[in-house]
Protein backbone atom coordinates (compact mmCIF):
# COMPACT_ATOMS: atom_id res chain seq x y z
CA UNK A 1 0.00 0.00 0.00
CA UNK A 2 1.47 3.36 -0.93
CA UNK A 3 0.80 6.80 0.51
CA UNK A 4 -0.87 8.29 -2.55
CA UNK A 5 -3.43 5.48 -2.68
CA UNK A 6 -4.18 6.10 0.98
CA UNK A 7 -4.68 9.81 0.28
CA UNK A 8 -6.98 9.12 -2.66
CA UNK A 9 -9.04 6.63 -0.66
CA UNK A 10 -9.26 9.08 2.23
CA UNK A 11 -10.59 11.73 -0.16
CA UNK A 12 -13.07 9.19 -1.54
CA UNK A 13 -14.11 8.42 2.01
CA UNK A 14 -14.58 12.09 2.87
CA UNK A 15 -16.60 12.56 -0.30
CA UNK A 16 -18.90 9.66 0.59
CA UNK A 17 -19.12 11.01 4.13
CA UNK A 18 -20.22 14.46 2.95
CA UNK A 19 -22.83 12.92 0.70
CA UNK A 20 -24.10 10.94 3.68
CA UNK A 21 -24.10 14.12 5.72
CA UNK A 22 -26.38 15.84 3.20
CA UNK A 23 -28.90 13.03 3.52
CA UNK A 24 -28.46 12.66 7.28
CA UNK A 25 -28.65 16.39 8.06
CA UNK A 26 -32.16 16.64 6.61
CA UNK A 27 -33.14 13.50 8.44
CA UNK A 28 -31.80 14.71 11.76
CA UNK A 29 -33.43 18.15 11.35
CA UNK A 30 -36.83 16.60 10.77
CA UNK A 31 -36.27 14.04 13.47
CA UNK A 32 -34.85 16.41 16.06
CA UNK A 33 -37.41 19.15 15.61
CA UNK A 34 -40.54 17.40 14.44
CA UNK A 35 -39.84 14.10 16.26
CA UNK A 36 -40.74 12.39 13.02
CA UNK A 37 -39.04 9.27 11.60
CA UNK A 38 -39.02 9.82 7.88
CA UNK A 39 -38.02 6.78 5.83
CA UNK A 40 -39.45 8.60 2.80
CA UNK A 41 -36.33 10.72 2.91
CA UNK A 42 -34.94 7.98 0.63
CA UNK A 43 -37.67 8.74 -1.88
CA UNK A 44 -36.92 12.47 -1.83
CA UNK A 45 -33.28 11.68 -2.52
CA UNK A 46 -34.35 9.70 -5.58
CA UNK A 47 -36.92 12.28 -6.71
CA UNK A 48 -34.27 15.00 -6.57
CA UNK A 49 -31.97 12.94 -8.77
CA UNK A 50 -34.65 12.22 -11.37
CA UNK A 51 -35.92 15.80 -11.55
CA UNK A 52 -32.35 17.03 -11.93
CA UNK A 53 -31.63 14.46 -14.66
CA UNK A 54 -34.73 15.45 -16.64
CA UNK A 55 -33.91 19.15 -16.31
CA UNK A 56 -30.30 18.56 -17.37
CA UNK A 57 -31.54 17.07 -20.64
CA UNK A 58 -34.19 19.78 -21.07
CA UNK A 59 -31.89 22.72 -20.34
CA UNK A 60 -28.59 21.25 -21.46
CA UNK A 61 -26.87 22.47 -18.32
CA UNK A 62 -26.27 20.49 -15.15
CA UNK A 63 -25.64 23.44 -12.82
CA UNK A 64 -28.80 25.24 -13.92
CA UNK A 65 -30.73 21.98 -13.53
CA UNK A 66 -29.56 21.61 -9.92
CA UNK A 67 -30.56 25.18 -9.09
CA UNK A 68 -34.05 24.58 -10.48
CA UNK A 69 -34.46 21.07 -9.11
CA UNK A 70 -33.74 22.12 -5.52
CA UNK A 71 -36.93 24.20 -5.03
CA UNK A 72 -38.94 21.60 -6.95
CA UNK A 73 -37.79 18.85 -4.60
CA UNK A 74 -38.63 21.10 -1.66
CA UNK A 75 -42.17 21.44 -3.06
CA UNK A 76 -42.49 17.65 -3.27
CA UNK A 77 -41.37 17.61 0.36
CA UNK A 78 -44.08 20.14 1.25
CA UNK A 79 -46.75 17.99 -0.37
CA UNK A 80 -45.58 14.96 1.60
CA UNK A 81 -45.62 17.01 4.77
CA UNK A 82 -49.18 18.22 4.23
CA UNK A 83 -50.69 14.91 3.19
CA UNK A 84 -48.93 12.20 5.16
CA UNK A 85 -46.48 13.55 7.69
CA UNK A 86 -48.60 16.16 9.48
CA UNK A 87 -51.31 13.81 10.74
CA UNK A 88 -48.57 11.54 12.09
CA UNK A 89 -46.65 14.07 14.21
CA UNK A 90 -48.68 13.13 17.26
CA UNK A 91 -48.37 9.40 16.68
CA UNK A 92 -45.73 6.91 17.75
CA UNK A 93 -42.56 6.19 15.81
CA UNK A 94 -43.90 2.84 14.68
CA UNK A 95 -46.76 4.43 12.74
CA UNK A 96 -44.35 6.90 11.19
CA UNK A 97 -41.95 4.16 10.10
CA UNK A 98 -44.73 2.17 8.45
CA UNK A 99 -46.43 5.07 6.69
CA UNK A 100 -43.21 6.46 5.30
CA UNK A 101 -42.17 2.95 4.25
CA UNK A 102 -45.41 2.96 2.25
CA UNK A 103 -44.39 6.32 0.79
CA UNK A 104 -41.12 4.81 -0.47
CA UNK A 105 -43.08 2.12 -2.31
CA UNK A 106 -45.41 4.72 -3.81
CA UNK A 107 -42.62 7.05 -4.94
CA UNK A 108 -40.47 4.29 -6.39
CA UNK A 109 -43.33 2.89 -8.40
CA UNK A 110 -44.30 6.35 -9.64
CA UNK A 111 -40.70 6.94 -10.71
CA UNK A 112 -40.75 3.60 -12.52
CA UNK A 113 -43.93 4.64 -14.34
CA UNK A 114 -42.74 8.15 -15.19
CA UNK A 115 -39.06 7.68 -15.99
CA UNK A 116 -38.94 3.96 -16.84
CA UNK A 117 -36.86 1.34 -15.11
CA UNK A 118 -33.59 2.03 -16.92
CA UNK A 119 -32.49 4.97 -14.82
CA UNK A 120 -31.00 8.15 -16.30
CA UNK A 121 -27.39 9.07 -16.48
CA UNK A 122 -26.62 12.75 -16.10
CA UNK A 123 -24.09 14.36 -18.45
CA UNK A 124 -21.68 16.82 -16.88
CA UNK A 125 -20.28 19.95 -18.49
CA UNK A 126 -16.71 19.44 -19.70
CA UNK A 127 -15.32 21.68 -17.00
CA UNK A 128 -16.55 19.26 -14.32
CA UNK A 129 -15.94 16.03 -16.17
CA UNK A 130 -12.15 15.63 -16.20
CA UNK A 131 -9.58 15.06 -13.51
CA UNK A 132 -7.79 17.51 -11.27
CA UNK A 133 -4.19 17.11 -10.25
CA UNK A 134 -3.65 17.82 -6.58
CA UNK A 135 -0.34 18.91 -5.08
CA UNK A 136 1.84 15.83 -4.97
CA UNK A 137 0.75 14.67 -8.40
CA UNK A 138 -2.36 12.87 -7.19
CA UNK A 139 -5.14 12.81 -9.74
CA UNK A 140 -8.78 12.74 -8.70
CA UNK A 141 -11.97 13.13 -10.74
CA UNK A 142 -12.93 16.81 -10.65
CA UNK A 143 -16.55 16.07 -9.87
CA UNK A 144 -15.61 14.24 -6.66
CA UNK A 145 -13.94 17.46 -5.53
CA UNK A 146 -17.11 19.34 -6.46
CA UNK A 147 -19.09 17.01 -4.19
CA UNK A 148 -16.64 17.64 -1.37
CA UNK A 149 -16.94 21.39 -1.93
CA UNK A 150 -20.73 21.34 -2.14
CA UNK A 151 -20.98 19.15 0.95
CA UNK A 152 -18.75 21.47 2.98
CA UNK A 153 -20.67 24.50 1.76
CA UNK A 154 -23.97 22.94 2.72
CA UNK A 155 -22.61 21.99 6.13
CA UNK A 156 -21.35 25.54 6.67
CA UNK A 157 -24.65 27.00 5.50
CA UNK A 158 -26.64 24.79 7.84
CA UNK A 159 -24.40 25.65 10.76
CA UNK A 160 -24.92 29.34 10.09
CA UNK A 161 -28.65 28.92 9.58
CA UNK A 162 -29.20 27.04 12.82
CA UNK A 163 -26.89 29.12 15.00
CA UNK A 164 -27.05 32.68 13.68
CA UNK A 165 -30.44 33.34 12.11
CA UNK A 166 -33.91 34.02 13.46
CA UNK A 167 -35.21 30.93 11.71
CA UNK A 168 -32.45 28.92 13.32
CA UNK A 169 -33.33 30.30 16.71
CA UNK A 170 -36.95 29.26 16.20
CA UNK A 171 -35.84 25.86 15.03
CA UNK A 172 -33.77 25.37 18.16
CA UNK A 173 -36.56 26.71 20.34
CA UNK A 174 -39.17 24.61 18.59
CA UNK A 175 -37.07 21.52 19.17
CA UNK A 176 -36.95 21.99 22.90
CA UNK A 177 -40.37 23.42 23.57
CA UNK A 178 -43.13 23.45 21.01
CA UNK A 179 -45.89 25.04 23.07
CA UNK A 180 -43.65 27.85 24.19
CA UNK A 181 -42.85 28.81 20.61
CA UNK A 182 -46.47 28.81 19.54
CA UNK A 183 -47.40 30.75 22.65
CA UNK A 184 -45.03 33.43 21.43
CA UNK A 185 -47.29 33.86 18.42
CA UNK A 186 -45.09 31.92 16.03
CA UNK A 187 -46.87 29.81 13.46
CA UNK A 188 -45.40 26.46 14.48
CA UNK A 189 -47.16 24.67 11.62
CA UNK A 190 -45.38 26.92 9.12
CA UNK A 191 -42.07 26.41 10.87
CA UNK A 192 -42.48 22.64 10.66
CA UNK A 193 -43.35 22.84 6.96
CA UNK A 194 -40.24 24.91 6.29
CA UNK A 195 -38.02 22.47 8.16
CA UNK A 196 -39.51 19.54 6.27
CA UNK A 197 -39.01 21.28 2.94
CA UNK A 198 -35.44 22.13 3.86
CA UNK A 199 -34.80 18.48 4.71
CA UNK A 200 -36.28 17.42 1.39
CA UNK A 201 -34.07 19.87 -0.51
CA UNK A 202 -30.97 18.56 1.28
CA UNK A 203 -31.84 14.94 0.43
CA UNK A 204 -32.57 16.01 -3.14
CA UNK A 205 -29.23 17.79 -3.37
CA UNK A 206 -27.43 14.62 -2.34
CA UNK A 207 -29.32 12.72 -5.02
CA UNK A 208 -28.45 15.33 -7.64
CA UNK A 209 -24.77 15.17 -6.74
CA UNK A 210 -24.54 11.38 -6.90
CA UNK A 211 -26.56 11.07 -10.14
CA UNK A 212 -23.72 12.13 -12.48
CA UNK A 213 -21.50 9.48 -10.88
CA UNK A 214 -23.85 6.53 -10.76
CA UNK A 215 -27.19 7.51 -12.26
CA UNK A 216 -30.70 8.40 -11.21
CA UNK A 217 -32.33 5.03 -10.62
CA UNK A 218 -35.35 3.59 -8.87
CA UNK A 219 -33.66 1.75 -6.04
CA UNK A 220 -31.02 4.37 -5.25
CA UNK A 221 -32.60 5.53 -2.00
CA UNK A 222 -32.87 2.06 -0.51
CA UNK A 223 -29.27 1.55 0.44
CA UNK A 224 -28.47 5.09 1.52
CA UNK A 225 -31.42 5.63 3.84
CA UNK A 226 -30.41 2.88 6.23
CA UNK A 227 -26.83 4.15 6.28
CA UNK A 228 -28.10 7.68 6.90
CA UNK A 229 -30.12 6.44 9.86
CA UNK A 230 -27.02 4.78 11.23
CA UNK A 231 -25.27 8.14 10.90
CA UNK A 232 -27.85 10.10 12.86
CA UNK A 233 -28.18 7.42 15.53
CA UNK A 234 -24.43 7.25 16.03
CA UNK A 235 -24.20 11.03 16.01
CA UNK A 236 -27.13 11.54 18.36
CA UNK A 237 -30.59 12.36 17.03
CA UNK A 238 -31.13 16.05 16.40
CA UNK A 239 -27.47 16.97 16.62
CA UNK A 240 -26.08 18.62 13.50
CA UNK A 241 -22.55 18.32 14.78
CA UNK A 242 -23.07 14.65 15.60
CA UNK A 243 -24.45 13.99 12.13
CA UNK A 244 -21.40 15.64 10.57
CA UNK A 245 -18.83 13.75 12.64
CA UNK A 246 -20.62 10.42 12.25
CA UNK A 247 -21.12 10.87 8.50
CA UNK A 248 -17.44 11.51 7.87
CA UNK A 249 -16.52 8.65 10.20
CA UNK A 250 -18.81 6.20 8.45
CA UNK A 251 -17.81 7.39 4.97
CA UNK A 252 -14.18 6.79 5.83
CA UNK A 253 -14.79 3.41 7.45
CA UNK A 254 -16.82 2.19 4.51
CA UNK A 255 -14.36 3.34 1.84
CA UNK A 256 -11.19 2.33 3.64
CA UNK A 257 -12.82 -0.97 4.55
CA UNK A 258 -13.61 -1.68 0.93
CA UNK A 259 -10.08 -0.72 -0.10
CA UNK A 260 -7.90 -2.42 2.42
CA UNK A 261 -9.85 -5.04 4.33
CA UNK A 262 -9.21 -7.81 1.82
CA UNK A 263 -5.46 -7.23 2.11
CA UNK A 264 -5.81 -7.49 5.87
CA UNK A 265 -7.85 -10.68 5.58
CA UNK A 266 -5.32 -12.23 3.27
CA UNK A 267 -2.91 -12.28 6.18
CA UNK A 268 -5.13 -14.73 8.04
CA UNK A 269 -7.05 -16.65 5.38
CA UNK A 270 -6.81 -17.88 1.80
CA UNK A 271 -6.97 -15.12 -0.79
CA UNK A 272 -10.10 -16.69 -2.30
CA UNK A 273 -11.96 -16.59 1.01
CA UNK A 274 -10.68 -13.08 1.72
CA UNK A 275 -11.99 -11.74 -1.57
CA UNK A 276 -15.42 -13.20 -0.91
CA UNK A 277 -15.69 -12.19 2.71
CA UNK A 278 -14.20 -8.69 2.48
CA UNK A 279 -17.08 -6.80 0.82
CA UNK A 280 -19.64 -8.19 3.24
CA UNK A 281 -17.47 -7.64 6.28
CA UNK A 282 -16.78 -4.03 5.33
CA UNK A 283 -20.55 -3.55 4.93
CA UNK A 284 -20.99 -5.07 8.38
CA UNK A 285 -18.44 -2.73 9.97
CA UNK A 286 -20.71 0.29 10.17
CA UNK A 287 -23.39 -1.70 11.98
CA UNK A 288 -20.85 -3.06 14.41
CA UNK A 289 -19.76 0.51 15.13
CA UNK A 290 -23.33 1.59 15.65
CA UNK A 291 -24.08 -1.24 18.06
CA UNK A 292 -20.86 -0.52 19.94
CA UNK A 293 -21.65 3.19 20.25
CA UNK A 294 -25.19 2.51 21.45
CA UNK A 295 -24.02 -0.14 23.91
CA UNK A 296 -21.90 2.43 25.69
CA UNK A 297 -23.75 5.65 24.88
CA UNK A 298 -27.43 4.80 24.37
CA UNK A 299 -28.12 8.40 23.19
CA UNK A 300 -25.38 8.49 20.55
CA UNK A 301 -22.10 10.40 20.52
CA UNK A 302 -23.48 13.95 20.77
CA UNK A 303 -26.94 13.87 22.34
CA UNK A 304 -28.62 17.31 22.14
CA UNK A 305 -28.70 18.91 25.55
CA UNK A 306 -32.36 19.77 25.80
CA UNK A 307 -34.91 17.14 24.85
Amino acid sequence: MDASLLIIQTLNGVQLGLLLFLVASGLTLVFGILDFVNLAHAALYMVGAFICASLTYALGNFVLAVLLALPLTAVVGLVVERTVARPLYSRGHLDQVLATFGLILVFETLAHMIWGPAGMSVPLPDSLNGQTTLPGGIQIPTFRLVIIGAGLAAAGGLFWLVNYTRLGMLIRAGASNRTMVSALGINIQLLFSLVFALGAALAGLAGMLIAPITEASIGMGHSIIITAFVVIIVGGIGSMKGAFVAAILIGLIDTLGRSFIDDLFKLVMSSEAAENAAPAISAMLIYIIMAAVLAFRPQGLFPPKVR
Binding site: F31, V97, A280, I288, A291, A295, Q299
Partner: peptide, 30 residues
Protein backbone atom coordinates in the same frame (compact mmCIF):
# COMPACT_ATOMS: atom_id res chain seq x y z
CA UNK B 1 -29.04 -7.27 26.54
CA UNK B 2 -27.59 -4.43 24.48
CA UNK B 3 -30.74 -3.28 22.66
CA UNK B 4 -32.87 -3.03 25.79
CA UNK B 5 -30.52 -0.45 27.23
CA UNK B 6 -31.92 1.94 24.62
CA UNK B 7 -35.42 3.34 24.21
CA UNK B 8 -37.71 4.63 21.50
CA UNK B 9 -36.30 5.12 18.08
CA UNK B 10 -32.83 4.07 19.25
CA UNK B 11 -34.31 0.65 20.00
CA UNK B 12 -35.91 0.48 16.56
CA UNK B 13 -32.63 1.25 14.88
CA UNK B 14 -30.32 -0.90 16.96
CA UNK B 15 -32.46 -4.00 16.43
CA UNK B 16 -32.25 -3.25 12.72
CA UNK B 17 -28.47 -2.83 13.00
CA UNK B 18 -28.06 -6.30 14.51
CA UNK B 19 -30.25 -7.78 11.81
CA UNK B 20 -28.12 -6.10 9.13
CA UNK B 21 -25.00 -7.50 10.78
CA UNK B 22 -26.35 -11.04 10.56
CA UNK B 23 -27.44 -10.36 6.98
CA UNK B 24 -23.96 -9.31 5.89
CA UNK B 25 -22.39 -12.03 8.04
CA UNK B 26 -24.29 -14.72 6.13
CA UNK B 27 -23.58 -13.02 2.80
CA UNK B 28 -19.86 -13.23 3.56
CA UNK B 29 -19.90 -17.01 4.04
CA UNK B 30 -19.13 -18.33 0.61
Amino acid sequence: MICLRTRGVYFIMITMAFAQMIYYGIVSIE
